[in-house]
């Protein structure tokens, strides 16, 4: 079963780190490399992604709407 996931968009992220304090599980860290805009972006490791609850608190905290959140849900194969 795939885990929940968040996507931190490198076009929007300005490296403010506000998402790191918003995540109740402390899953988000700052990268050690610059992004295209010249900022140090937020990143989440695949190990940490496996623990993500898809609560979206990080995304709500982000001033640049850089985070998309996806929740793993089960369907019966019919209309979702």
């Amino acid at each position: 079963m795939p885990s929940n996931r968040i996507e931190i968009d490198p076009i929007y992220c300005k490296g403010c780190a506000l998402c790191t304090i918003a995540c109740p599980q402390k899953l988000i860290e700052m990268s050690d490399a610059l992004n295209e805009q010249g900022y140090i972006p937020a990143v989440i490791s695949s190990g940490n992604l496996a623990r993500c609850t898809a609560c979206a608190l990080c995304a709500r905290m982000c001033p640049d709407a850089a985070i998309r959140v996806f929740k793993s849900v089960e369907t019966d194969g019919g209309q979702s």
Partner: peptide, 13 residues
Amino acid sequence: MTTVLKNVFDRPV
């Protein structure tokens, strides 16, 4: 049963 990833938070339209 299949598992899908549902977009639960995105940039507003």
